[in-house]
């Protein structure tokens, strides 16, 4: 474990907690893409199948349990409890356009052709693009609530910090996973446009508004 990865995991944790706080306090899922949350749930389910078979550390297990349960809870809140506030008309990104290419790529490009490893690879590829429905929805509505933009900033930062973690592990632990690194770079690049808007607008106290 290194500081980059620890801070990255804490950013990820903060993002998920921020999202749950937003939903619970505002009693609304307005502006949230249920599709992205479904994809994130799928990412955790397919990645953490080794939760019981492969013990890494208490920290690893606790975080996996929290990520799994919180992502499933978020999907539940969006599609059942606060369904009345879910803005389905703007959450129209076709998930199959992400699921099918990620599945095919995971079958073709992986470290080992075994079910667990292909599912892990699928989860890595899917995580890289899972935020697209949310970013697409913001581009359609033209704006995002401030707390939603904090959520996105924390979520985008987590994988950016992981890139530094991979650099660190490459130089000091001689550990390198090209699949995770390439997907992680793609994932972080997808947030760049949002990062620019967040830093130039939200941090200036303005609402996140996309140029019409």
């Amino acid at each position: 474990m290194n500081a980059f990865r620890l801070v990255g995991d804490l950013c990820h944790l903060a993002a998920i907690v921020l999202l749950l706080l937003k939903i619970w306090k505002s009693r609304s899922v307005a502006g949230l893409s249920g599709k992205s949350q479904i994809l994130f749930g799928l990412v955790f389910v397919t990645r953490y199948l080794d939760l019981v078979t492969n013990f890494v550390s208490p920290y690893n297990t606790i975080m996996k349990v929290f990520f799994l349960s919180s992502s499933i809870a978020t999907v539940y809140l969006i599609y059942t409890k606060f369904k009345a506030t879910y803005d389905g008309n703007h959450d129209t990104f076709r998930m199959e356009f992400l699921l099918i290419p990620c599945a095919l790529l995971a079958i073709v490009v992986n470290h080992e052709f075994s079910p667990m490893e292909i599912l892990w690879t699928f989860s890595i590829y899917l995580e890289a693009v899972a935020i697209l429905p949310q970013l697409f929805m913001i581009s359609k509505t033209g704006e995002a609530e401030t707390i939603t933009s904090h959520y996105l900033f924390a979520l985008g930062s987590y994988r950016g910090l992981y890139i530094m973690n991979w650099l660190y592990r490459y130089y000091y632990e001689n550990n390198f996973d090209v699949i995770a690194v390439v997907a992680g770079i793609v994932q972080t690049v997808l947030y760049c446009d949002f990062f620019y808007l967040y830093i130039t607008k939200v941090l200036q106290g303005k609402k996140l508004q996309l140029p019409a």
Binding site: R5, V56, N60, F67, N165
Partner: peptide, 10 residues
């Protein structure tokens, strides 16, 4: 099964 495939990251 090449055992360096233990994924120790979240």
């Amino acid at each position: 099964h090449n055992h360096n495939l233990v994924h120790d990251e979240l």
